[in-house]
């Protein structure tokens, strides 16, 4: 089982590296790919970390020592239930992820609609002005 997890983990790193490289290559045509790649690769890691912190706090609350920091303090004050907080956490994380996807995809679409130069980012401004002068 450990070997399976190690192989799976290595494969996961390799695939994420492939996504990163492909996005880096695509970023020559539209910089929105950088944000999209970062969201696809890094967001699940960030989400997993947040989920672990939440679950650790839930465990801590189950043992009878509720943390005094927000938003857990509102559970201690019995304003909301623990289930409500966990559900809201997942919903808000999902929403942020989709907003990031939408913003990066719109940035990509905008770069492609931006005209000829949007697809030719390798042209330096001085080269471009020389071409125009000719």
């Amino acid at each position: 089982m450990t070997a399976e997890l190690i192989v799976g983990g290595l494969l996961w790193v390799a695939l994420n590296a492939a996504i990163g490289i492909a996005c880096w290559r695509c970023a020559r045509w539209a910089t929105g790919f950088l944000l999209l790649g970062a969201t696809v690769v890094l967001w699940p890691v960030f989400y997993g970390f947040g989920e672990r912190v939440l679950m650790a706090t839930v465990q801590q609350m189950a043992t009878g020592s509720p943390p005094s920091i927000f938003p857990f303090s509102i559970i201690a004050a019995e304003s909301v239930s623990l289930g409500y907080l966990v559900t809201r956490f997942h919903q808000v994380m999902q929403l942020v992820r989709y907003v990031l996807y939408a913003v990066s995809f719109l940035l990509i679409a905008r770069s492609f609609k931006g005209g000829r130069n949007a697809s030719r980012p390798e042209l330096k401004p001085d080269v471009e002005s020389n071409l125009r002068a000719k």
Binding site: W12, A18, I19, A22, R25
Partner: peptide
């Protein structure tokens, strides 16, 4: 393991789609 497999499938699909996009953008150029 099931969750890891599901995540690997997601990564593989994204890698394939991004590679396709990079390829076709390069070809168009």
């Amino acid at each position: 393991s099931f969750n890891l497999g599901l995540d690997l499938l997601r990564c593989a699909l994204y890698a394939a789609v991004f590679a396709l996009i990079a390829r076709s953008l390069g070809k168009n150029r």
